[in-house]
């Protein structure tokens, strides 16, 4: 802490000196144009809720960057309620302090489409993050869920190995969310290429750990020889892992899931063997992509709604074997950092 403060003080001092001293870099038109385009701009993030690792991670990285270039960063927390999210967006568009960039984490394919169109009409750039929607946003930043599903399936096949029962169980999210639907499609694509592997059951968890546990328990009873289970989200995969523990099949069933790469949620669980493999999103890089496209859009001068960029984040299935110290980001550390300010 003390070190940090000293560093910051030093940095400030340096900046002041740099500002005061006549600088030959003043000739570079870049910083001035950059500041002119970005200064005072507003960025708003409307995730599904602020209460989970991904949203908190994004908010952290975005806030740091946006405030650094003199913008205002705000979040809205609909707490998983779609109507509340819709209203938050509506209010934001109609308010005096209309954001220049709206980053939306869509709950499903449809609900916000019309509002996003309205936002663009009002002159606000719309960024979709993580969940795709049936709307041509200015940019989409997030996972290619289809690809992600393929990675999961490949990890599961690898986890099972050649001499296994080759039975795979899926614990899906629900039948409405695009991330769940596309993941499933991706998994199926891979499994088509491996006809010897079969999906024996594919219940839904409704993103709830208790439900995940119950359905997994039943699945394991019906098919005790399952070699791998793919749970569609680390938020409820704890339930599936509990069921595996209950059935005393730890180590025998290879649990694959996906998540935001948070340390406690993913890496720690890989270390203790709860998960066999996690397809992790590199959150810092994803946030970096968002920052870059925001900066680009604000300087581009093109009207909102004219560009349609897709930036898919690099995904990688991580197992205990290839775990590195920097494989995960630590939410606790970010929070501590935020609290220290």
């Amino acid at each position: 802490m003390k070190l940090l403060r000293t560093l910051m003080a030093a940095a400030t001092a340096l900046a002041v000196t740099a500002f005061v001293a006549p600088s030959f870099a003043a000739d570079d038109p870049g910083p001035a144009a950059y500041a002119k385009a970005l200064n005072g701009k507003r960025v708003m993030l409307v995730p599904l809720a602020m209460g989970f690792d991904l949203a908190q991670g994004w908010a952290h990285y975005l806030k740091k960057e946006v405030e650094a270039w003199g913008g205002t960063f705000e979040t809205r927390d609909p707490n998983w309620v779609v109507d509340a999210g819709a209203q938050a967006i509506t209010d934001a568009i109609a308010s005096d302090t209309r954001p220049d960039v709206l980053i939306i984490h869509a709950p499903d394919l449809n609900s916000y489409s019309k509002l996003m169109k309205k936002a663009q009409a009002a002159g606000t750039y719309v960024l979709l993050v993580d969940n795709p929607a049936n709307f041509p946003a200015d940019a989409f930043v997030g996972s290619d869920w289809d690809k992600l599903g393929q990675l999961e399936a490949e990890a599961a096949i690898k986890g099972c190995g050649e001499n296994s029962s080759k039975k795979i169980g899926l614990v899906q999210g629900d039948q409405a969310n695009s991330s769940s639907l596309y993941q499933y499609a991706g998994i199926m694509k891979v499994l088509e290429k491996h006809p010897d592997f079969q999906v024996v059951a594919k219940p839904d968890s409704n993103w709830d750990a208790t439900t995940s546990r119950n359905v997994t328990t039943t699945m394991l009873q019906q098919h005790p020889d399952i070699c791998s289970i793919i749970d569609f989200w680390d938020g409820d995969a704890t339930g599936a892992s509990a069921a595996i523990r209950d059935a005393k099949l730890d180590g025998k069933v290879f649990l694959v899931t996906t998540g935001g790469g948070e340390k406690a949620a993913d890496c720690d669980k890989l270390v203790d063997g709860t998960y066999g493999a996690v397809v992790m999103t590199d959150l810092a890089r994803q946030s970096g992509d968002m920052n870059a496209i925001i900066k680009f859009l604000l300087q581009s001068g093109q009207p909102a709604g004219t560009s349609h960029t897709y930036i898919y984040t690099l995904e990688k299935a991580t197992t205990k074997a290839d775990l590195k110290p920097d494989s995960c980001w630590d939410l606790k550390a970010l929070q501590a950092e935020a609290a220290a300010k």
Partner: peptide, 17 residues
């Protein structure tokens, strides 16, 4: 009215209402 406002229906429509 909400169908007109949002031009669609999603899984969250009317939740907790």
């Amino acid at each position: 009215l909400i169908a007109c406002r949002l031009s669609g229906a999603g899984p969250g429509t009317g939740l907790n209402l």
